[in-house]
Each structure stands twice: as C-alpha cells, then as structure tokens.
Amino acid sequence: MRCKKIRELILTDHIDGELSGDISEKIEKHLASCPGCRKVKEEAMDIAASLRSSARIDPPETLWKGIKEAIEEGRIPHENDLLSGIRDFLVVRRPVLVSAAAAFAIAAVVLLKSYVYDPLVLNTYMEQQMDFLDYLDNGNGGADGDTGIPFEDLFL
C-alpha cells in the first residue's frame, strides 16, 4: 500500500480500531519502515488523546427542575395517542405523498384499532410503516412509481 492510502486509514479506521487484523498488520509493517506515516499517526494519536481524556460535563442542577416543571404544567403532552402520532407524521411528509400518507394512516387506524391495544406495539408498527414511506419518499418508487396503480389504492 502507498503512503496516501495508509495515511487515510491511519486517520480513520486504524486509530479508531475498526480494521481487521489483516490490514492492521500491513499498516504496522509499513509504519515500521516509514517515518512520514509514523509522524502522521503520532500527531493523530496526540489529538485523539486530548479529546478522549476531556472532561465529562454535568448539567446544572436547575436543568431537571425546568424539565419537570414543563412536564407537570402539562405543556409537554405524551404522544402516545394514535392521532397525535399521525398528525406529526403528516406534517413531515412531502406534499406529494401527503394524501397517500393520510389515506394510509386512516386505513391503519381502522385496521388496527380493533385488535391492537398496546400503544408500544402500535407505535412500532406505525414506525415501520413510516420507514417504508421514507423509502418510497427517497425516490425508490412511490406515488409516481411504475406499478400503474395509484399509491393510495395499494392500501385501501
């Protein structure tokens, strides 16, 4: 391996312990015979050591008080009811998928309300569906995909 590639690895996977033994060995071997790369490693290790030994910072005592007050005064509702989850979910959608998302969300409520009672189970399910929509949203298909079926119809 050449110095350029070696240095890239030194500044990343090597000093972060992300390499397999095989490549690590090759790097060590190179370092033994290359003062330039050794210097890069030393400098990188010095900086890493400063950062790694830096102090953990505790929050001020008042932080918890403020959080607790905000919650107890009812300013921060739990989003454990289905409707607020859906509202949130719709707000972040891109416009093109909103109607599909709404249709899907309503379908999900209708389908699920009858037999899922555990909000955590339900939320997991909703999250999985959101990920699926994200997947579509990221250009992997979706409303203008080539199935020929309107997106909404897949769910209704």
Binding site: I67, A70, I71, I76, P77, H78, E79, N80, G85, P119, L120, N123, T124, M126, E127, Q128
Partner: peptide, 14 residues
Amino acid sequence: FLNVYRKLAGFGFR
C-alpha cells in the same frame, strides 16, 4: 429531554 418525554411511547425498541 422534553422531546424524549414527548416521543417515548413511539420509541418502538427498534
């Protein structure tokens, strides 16, 4: 922490 509180039920353990 307010966000964590708000979204706890939706955490989902994934």
